[in-house]
Every structure is written in C-alpha cells, then in structure tokens.
Design a protein around this nucleic acid. Structure first.
Lengths: 213, 213, 213, 213
DNA sequence: CATGAATGAGTCTTCATTCAT
DNA sequence: GATGAATGAAGACTCATTCAT
C-alpha cells in the first residue's frame, strides 16, 4: 500500500514549492512540471490543490505521532552538559529535516482565516508526552505534582518551540545576513537556548521544592 | 504631503486583508470594495499590488525608526520587578498594535524566495539602539566591552523577538484553544519571558564581570 | 438604464448558441468570439455561464408578462373562421419569434434535474389571463362558472401549448424532411390545431350549458 | 449474442444519466461508477460516449420496429368508449416505459445542430403502420383513399405524438406542481386527448364520406 | 475482460492591470 | 481624482479517451 511513485513525487514537489512561494502563489502547473507528471494526474490523486496541502499535513502529523510515541528522549534527565548539547543539536536536526512542512504550516497558520491550527496540534502532541516524563521525574524526586501546567505550556510554546522553529526557518538567511557559518550559528543558538528556555524549567522545578518556599 | 483619504483607506484595508489571507490570496478587487474606491484608483496611487505591500512596509519601517530613536526605554535599567513587568507589558502592547503588519511580514519572510528580509531590518534597528544602551551601561559599571555580540544578536532575535512576535500573533487563537483569558495569558507569558529571555542577559552580564571568571 | 452594447451582444449570442447546441455543449469561448467581446468581459457582466441563462430566462419572462398583460386578444371571441385563422397564425408568429429561448427552455426543462420549470411559469401566466377571459365570456352567456379548471389546464398545456411549441421548434426540419413548404405546413397545422384543440374548448363549453345536462 | 452483463449495465446506467442531465452534461466517469465497471471497460465496449447514445437509439428503434410490427392494435376500430380509454391508457403506459430514451431523444433533437432526427424516424415507423390500417378500414367502408396524407401526418405528429410525449415527460412534475395525483392526471389527459386528437380523425373521416358534403 | 494509471486538449473562471472618458 | 468597461494571461480543474499490464 505504498504511495505510487507519481503520487509521492507530486507530494514531494508540492511540499518544496509550497515552502518556496507559499500555498497561494504555488502553481499546480509548476508542481506538475517539476514532478514530471501530467497536470491531470494530480487531479487523479488529489481533489484539489488544497487537498495536497491537507495530505501533506496529515502525513506529517502521522509521522510526528509515531516519532513522539516511539522515541524522544528526555532532555532533562541527561546528566552532563555535553550530553544535553548533543541531544539538543540532534533535536534541532530533526526539526531541520521537517523544515519545509514547518514553513508551510507557519505561513498558513499566520493567516487569520486559518483553520484549526496544526501548530497547536503539534504542541499538544509534544506536551502530552513531556507531561508524562515530567510527572515521572517529579515522582522520582519525591515532589508533588503542583506545577502550573498552563504556564508550562506557554513557556514550551512561546519560548521553546517558537525559537526552535524560527531558528530552523531563518538560520540560513541569518547566517548569510550576519556573515557567520551555520556551525557557529548552531553553536551560539544552542548556548542561548539552553540558557534561556532551560532556565524556565529550572525555575519551575525550584518552585516545587519544599525547601524552596 | 498628507496621504489623501482614499489612499489612506486603501492602505488600511490592504493591511487588513493581507493580514487576513496573505498577500497572494488577497484580491485587489476586495481591497477596492472594502476601501470603497474604484479599482482603477488603486492603480492611480500604486504601481501594482506589490507596491502597496512595499509602501506598507516602508511606512512601518519609518515609524519604527522614529519610535526607536525617540523612546524605547531601557528594559535593563528598570529597578524593580514591578517596573520591569509594567514596561514589558507596554512593550507587548506596542507590538500588538503592529500585529497586522507583523503578520504580513512574517508570512512574506517565510517564503524561501523572500527578498531582503524586513525582519532582519527591524532586528538591526532594534539592536543598534540596544547596543548603545548596553555600552553605556557597561561603561558605567566599569566593565570592558567584551561580550559576544553575535551571540547577543542570536539571543535577542530567536529567544527575544521571536517569542514576542509569535505571542502577539498567536495569543488570540491560543487563548481560545486552551481556554484561558487574554489577561491571564499575558501574565503568564510575561512571567515566562522575563525568566527565560532575561536570564540570558543576566548570564551575559555575569560573564563580563571579573570576579566571575 | 439600457443594457450596454457589449452585454446585449453577449446575451444575444448566448441565446443563439445555447439554442444551437444546448447549454452544456455551448462554450463561453465561442460566445465571446461571436459576440466580439473579451472572454473576461462576460464574467464582468455575469457571474457564470449559468447566470447568462438565468438572465435570458428572466428577461423572457418579463417580456412575456408585459405582452400577456397588455395584449393577447381572445381567440374564442373572434367571429369568423377567417379571423380565427389569421389570429392563430399571428400567434404562431409570436412564438416563432421566441423560438430560441423556447428551445433552450425545453431542452433544460427536459433534464430530470431541472429546477422550478420555467415552462410551468409560462403556463401559469398564460392561464391566469385566459381564465379571466373565460369567466367574462361565461358570465356574458349567463353560464355558471363550473368548468373543470384542472382539465382545462391539462388541455391547454398538453394539447394547446405543446403542439404549438413543438410546431415552432420542429417545423423547419419537418418541412425539409417531408418535402413541404413552410407556408403549406403552417396552413395544415393551423387546420389541424383549430380542429383538435378548439374542439376541447367547444366541448368544455357545451358541458356547461343547461340544456346539455 | 446476448449483451454481456457489464455492457448491459453500462447501457442502462447511461440511459438513466443521459435522461437525468442530458448527454452533454453526463460524465463517462459517473456512468462507470454507477454501472460499477472500470471506466476503460466502457471504451472496450463502445467507441466513444456518443456511440453509447447511438446504441441506445439503435436498440430503441429496433424494439419499436418489432413492437409496431407485431402488435399495436387499431385505436379506431375499438368499439366502445371504455375500450378506447383502456387502450389509450395502456398506450400511454407503453410510452411511459420508454420515458428515459424519449427524454434523451427530445433533448437531442431540440439542438439545432441535431442530425437526422430520430423523432421523425419513429414518426415514420408509426405512420407506415397506421396508414395500412387506415387504408384497410377505408376499403372496408367502401371509401376512396383520398384523404390528405400530409395533413394527417401533421396531425399525428403535432397533436398526437407531441402531446403524448410531453405528457409522459412532464406528468410527474406537473402533478407535483399543480397538486394532483398521477391517476387523476392520467384520467384528465385521457379525456382531453380523446376529445382533441380523435376529433381530427373523425373530421378527416367525415371529409371522405360522400354523404358528408 | 478488466483495471489503475496516465494524458492532451480543453473549459470555466480569475485576476492584475489598463483604457477612455 | 475618479470611474465603468475592457483585456491578456494565466489559473484551477475537467473530461473523454488511451495505455500497459
């Protein structure tokens, strides 16, 4: 039940072109040309241009779900700075590999007329998973589960995910604009992210400790 | 040299519609209709649909320049938590008032084919200003100007501006999605932002102090 | 408030082409070409191909209403065979001048998925008018208004209007197929129609007369 | 040489869909779907969409020929009103069973660009048969064959066949529109038709009788 | 026979832009 | 300034038909 060659090509090319010029500026003709299929074939596999986008999103969500369920180690249990940095960089790499779909998603979600916000769906998937880890960790450390869940969410979204997504999406242009190599940029961002975002987790944790009150 | 009424109306409506559906999905007809002007009049004032966008961006940049030069107090010299919070909230309010143009800018800048990246221009304007403040502050405290400028930039952009921009752009949907009032959401974001982003500034500063080595 | 030249031309050509090949087989391109207007201009004046048809129908109905209200002499009060024949022929001539729209209407109304049946609307308009004439006539002759209205309707539609419409629509081909001149054909049809359809009116009338019971 | 199941299904479904939306608006895809055959199979059995229509017409004509030759009693020899009415109703029932193909035929024949007019072919078949009956009848009654053949044709087509066809094609909508049951409608139409159309036959016959002058 | 995939040539409709007044 | 009309060049989508297996 693999996707046919042509269909897969259409999806791949559509993803690329949507990312390049945005959904609305993308042309079905161009997708057909680059995917080397007859334009009508696109409509054999998809109801409309919009439904290509939907399938792209759906596929991505499915993949995300599987990945999140199966792996995604716990950032906060890594026991050395080195390990934390290494893990974070591989995490960045993961999102970097999803760059195109991420870009499309963000462009679409910025429209005020946008629908149910796939961005939030990702967030929810990510959080459900993290929550369990945090709970487990807290239990191990003998702490009560009393943290401010909503604030955690706010932090993870706006000062966690958003910096990471924007980094992935802007890093190339940034590197070019400010004359810095990608490697250096990744290093600096890693520094900065670990200091900023992780300081929230530290803070949240501190708030829970009995001797802290 | 004030903008004529009609022209101003065109710009205002265009900004609204571009923000709602994105530049490419916006229709000149719709702009004309909502602005209550004849479609041809748009072409009397503007060369093309794209040049409406350009003027919108240009105007915004001009305004930003004036605002930055004239005001923009120094977040880091405010001497009480209360004052810092109050200032930050008014800062959020400022960006909130620029929401539409920000939205358009982000949508456009996410296109891989995007041009000179107005986002970076804003960043540059903001930084130039901050830099001077920081230098002044450092001088006053007798510290050498030796901090990692690029890292500061990375931090300010990815963990400062991006969280703020995304907050402004997503807060309504977020509040709706997670069932929280806007006021509460602003509060929580303020908490989180001050903890995360400011911890970088603290850290950067610490790195400079002699006794810190 | 006259229809602009171009719009009128579009309507005229559309009527002709719809009649020639049917609505579905008619091509907007062809209408544009024959009407000597830019194809896009058609969409400046009309929402869609279908709405050209609707306007054609609407205009026709309006015209019918006016004509029916203002004129339409009473066939049954004409006092000599000659006059009846002459009137009937001019009546035929009237429908002949509406041939195109009639043709389109019939084609469309034959579709099972057809909507509110413009054919019946015509019928209703025609009947409302005739009814009054009949009532007046009966009153003058001192007869009770007791005729079977529904049967009258059935007669007028299926053995009155339908023969007339089909005559108008098929007469040319008929004349060609059976090798007869149009004039002769009209004569024969007039004979036949006056014998058949009018015999119903005579019969209905007879039924009402007291001595007839 | 029976039609294969699939082929028969294609023909049946095509007939239904052509009748519903007209030949031009009917889609080969839809025929395939409803007939539960692969679209390509349609092109195995038929050269083109048009040739489905042709086969439908051809089959219908064949059937008509057989029916006409074998049966079709003589309406004018039935000796009581009751019998005439009963025969006429069964005649209506026959055409009602051919409703779909009739509908298609009429729609197609209304196109000005229509070809050889299957409607006239039916007419011719019907007439050839009737003619013989009439001749036989006349001979039996000792009358000369001197009637106006063309006028008879005109009558049979425009005030015989057309009312019957339109009755069959419009009766459902008519009943719905005028709020009458089908049975009642059939009764009324039977009344009306026998009065109108048959009065022509009576008239024609009268004209032939010597004592009639 | 049967089918999933593929395609050329449309077909309606849209849209930014321009013209004439 | 302002407008109704006009237009070229696409744009998304369709459809009868064919191919390969």
């Amino acid at each position: 039940m693999e996707k046919s060659d042509a269909k897969a090509r259409i999806l791949a090319v559509a993803e690329k072109i949507f990312a390049e010029k945005g959904f609305d500026a993308a042309r079905v003709d161009e997708i057909a040309r680059e995917a080397q299929v007859n334009k009508a074939l696109i409509y054999y596999y998809f109801e409309s241009k919009a439904s290509i986008l939907e399938e792209l999103f759906r596929d991505f969500m499915m993949e995300m779900m599987h990945i999140i369920e199966s792996s995604m180690e716990d950032l906060f249990l890594l026991d050395s700075d080195e390990k934390v940095r290494a893990f974070f960089k591989s995490y960045l790499g993961f999102w970097d590999s999803k760059k195109n779909i991420l870009r499309i998603m963000m462009m679409e979600s910025l429209k005020e007329s946008a629908p149910d916000e796939p961005l939030f769906k990702i967030m929810d998937m990510l959080m459900k998973q993290e929550e369990e880890k945090i709970k487990a960790m807290l239990r191990k450390q003998g702490l009560h589960i009393g943290y401010d869940r909503m604030e955690g969410l706010v932090s993870d979204f706006f000062t966690g995910l958003m910096p990471i997504f924007s980094f992935v999406l802007y890093k190339d242009e940034w590197a070019a604009h400010y004359g810095i190599t990608e490697t250096e940029l990744i290093d600096k961002f890693t520094n900065v992210f670990l200091i900023t975002h992780l300081s929230y987790h530290r803070y949240a944790l501190d708030r829970l400790k009995p001797e802290n009150e």
